[in-house]
Design a protein around this nucleic acid. Structure first.
Length: 443
RNA sequence: GUCCGAAUAGUGUAGAGGCCUAUCAUGGAGCCCUGUCGAGGCUCCGACCCGGGUUCGAAUCCCGGUUCGGGCGCCA
């Protein structure tokens, strides 16, 4: 079973150098109709670009000419005709149609403009995401997001990581700290998972050695900023028999590789967005926490005592400092106070006040956090207790540490933040097709 | 959560108590036009977030609500 007018080409696949008078069918949306009287141009748009359909009144059947003039913008059409090289046409070729089939006519007026002539606010765009995606700049972001994820999978697979999936419905809080969304699971209460953290660690006990997961995470925090989502995509790894320095190296190499791949495979999308991407130079600068607070305190705008967390302003101060010194946007903050990191971060043996933990930062925000983990059962149980959590809720997790858990390390990267910082997108919602924030639950 | 700001045709905007029968662009309807590529020209269509108040008079000032945006917080 097939459609009557199967597509033969994306608009981008018609090469003016190679075609002579080739019969093609393109399928897409009516982007624009420019009726000049004796000649009419119809621009058809598909995922990969646009094609000009040219109808000269004197040379073409009256019926098809009149039908073309009356096409409603954003209607879905299949156009069959001959593709000819034409210097005056936008892509170097134009299609002289034999048949224009309207597969589905669009209503009018449209919820927003698709041509780039009139801006729309993010809220308007998200309400009508189906139309927003017809804008080339929006499509470009999601093509790049795809390339980012493809590159991550390639890179990690080549590094010997196995892709895994952990449950999103869980019985108890996995890490404490952040709030969870409660749900009903048959006759019990359950939660949406905030992170694959505990599960990927259990897999280390299982001997999978190196795993990664790309999946949704849920945070019930009532935050309300340009860089937070309540449903986000996390890129997580966990690796056995390695320390935090090893996984930092994997992380910085992965970031550089992702940038390379995007430049190589999505140059058209980058150009569309007006972005000239530079591959971050590795290794990334490592700033120990104690130096980081010195940088902030030296500026004198705020004073952070040792053990305090870094706020947004402090992060920016450090980011600017690193950027001025290195010209690079990416860096690590290492050796955090054990107290302000999760219970699974391994304290240094010779100085247990600090931990083998790190955050990987872009100068505008945090992108990743990771650590060498506590792999010793008794120490882990103690750390859980010392953070005010009840070890009973972690029995499923702690058991995995009793029967041969190797030393291991890992990290998690926020996919949306990676795309956001790469493209200089101002609002994280622009990097998710259907973002979930405190207010938005639909579409 | 908190502070600041905003809300006008489908979309994006102008507007500082009477000049508003509300600006402009885009869009829609129609006419003219043979190489457009943000086509052009002419005609027409389409809006002041909701509820109170002040005033002779409110899009404009005040109060409350709703929604949106930005900073910070929380958080990754």
């Amino acid at each position: 079973m097939s459609l009557e007018n199967p597509r033969t080409h994306y608009t981008s696949q018609i090469d003016p150098e190679k075609i002579g008078d080739e019969k093609v069918t393109v399928c897409g949306w009516v982007h624009e109709v420019r009726d000049l009287g004796g000649i009419c141009f119809v621009v058809v748009r598909d995922r990969e670009g646009k094609a000009q359909i040219t109808l000269v009144k004197k040379k073409i059947d009256k019926e098809i000419f009149d039908a073309a003039r009356k096409l409603v913008r954003e209607s879905v059409v299949a156009v069959t005709g001959s593709a000819k090289p034409e210097g005056k046409a936008p892509n170097g070729y134009e299609i002289i149609p034999e048949e224009i089939v309207v597969l589905n006519e669009a209503e009018s007026p449209l919820p927003m403009d698709t041509t780039g002539k009139v801006d729309a606010e993010l809220d308007t765009r998200l309400d009508s995401r189906f139309i927003d995606l017809r804008r080339e700049k929006t499509t470009a972001i999601f093509k790049i997001r795809h390339e980012v994820l493809r590159a991550v999978r390639n890179f990690l697979s080549d590094e010997g990581f196995i892709e895994t999936s952990s449950p999103k419905v869980v019985a108890t809080a996995t890490e404490g700290g952040t709030s969870l969304f409660p749900i009903t699971y048959f006759d019990r209460e359950a939660f949406l998972n905030q992170s694959p953290q505990l599960f990927k660690q259990i897999l280390m006990s299982g001997g999978l050695d190196r795993v990664f997961e790309i999946g949704p995470i849920f945070r019930a925090e009532e935050h309300d900023t340009r860089r937070h989502l309540n449903e986000a995509t996390s890129i997580d790894i966990e690796a056995s028999f390695v320390d935090h320095f090893d996984v930092m190296e994997i992380l910085e190499n992965m970031i550089a590789y992702v940038y390379e791949q995007v430049i190589e495979n999505e140059s058209a999308s980058l150009e569309n967005l007006g972005i000239e991407l530079e591959v971050p130079k590795t290794p990334f600068m490592k700033v120990p926490y104690s130096e980081a607070i010195d940088i902030v305190n030296a500026k004198g705008e705020e004073m952070i005592e040792w053990g305090g967390d870094l706020g947004t302003v402090a992060e920016h101060t450090i980011g600017e400092h690193v950027f001025e010194e290195t010209g690079e946007s990416h860096y690590f903050i290492t050796d955090w106070p054990t107290e302000i990191k999760p219970f699974y971060a391994m304290p240094y043996e010779n100085d247990p006040l600090i931990s083998k933990s790190f955050d990987m930062m872009h100068r505008t925000m945090e992108l990743s956090s990771g650590a060498q983990r506590v792999h010793l059962h008794d120490m882990l149980k103690e750390r859980i207790e010392s953070q005010g959590l009840n070890p009973d809720g972690f029995e499923f997790y702690l058991r995995a540490f009793k029967y041969g858990m190797p030393p291991h390390s890992g990290w998690g990267v926020g996919c949306e933040r990676l795309v956001m910082t790469m493209l200089g997108v101002e609002n994280i919602r622009d990097t998710v097709l259907f973002p979930r924030d405190r207010r938005r639950l639909s579409p």
